[in-house]
């Protein structure tokens, strides 16, 4: 079983307590009625789905119930780090070279 560190519970907890909640750092347009269909498509449907490092939202559903962000490697399934919702994308990742 994977252990995921919850930044609110401040410890590693079993993966069964968590839910993935999609890609992180997607900003909702301030005036959604004003944007074009193409821009709406980009905002609403288009996701990076990278091979390697991905920034995701997770929720500690069966724990503190908080949403937070996680950096994960989609090749190894390893969690690189987690941080609280609203915090900026970390510029430096521990143990990742590029």
């Amino acid at each position: 079983m994977l252990l995921i560190r919850c930044p609110y519970c401040e410890e590693e907890r079993p993966e069964l307590e968590f839910r993935n909640a999609g890609e992180a750092h997607i900003a909702r347009p301030t005036d959604i009625a004003a944007i074009s269909d193409d821009d709406f498509e980009k905002f609403f449907f288009i996701r990076q789905n990278p091979k390697g490092i991905i920034y995701e939202r997770w929720r500690h559903l069966h724990g503190c119930a908080r949403f937070f962000n996680a950096v994960r490697d989609t090749v190894s399934d390893k969690f690189v780090m987690t941080y609280k919702a609203g915090e900026p994308k970390p510029s430096k990742l521990p143990g990742v070279s590029k």
């Binding site: 519970c9 907890r13 069964l16 307590e17 069966h62 724990g63 503190c64 119930a65």
Partner: peptide, 10 residues
């Protein structure tokens, strides 16, 4: 104390 799961139940 903690909210957690037991089998398929919270």
């Amino acid at each position: 104390c903690s909210r957690t799961i037991f089998g398929k139940v919270e």
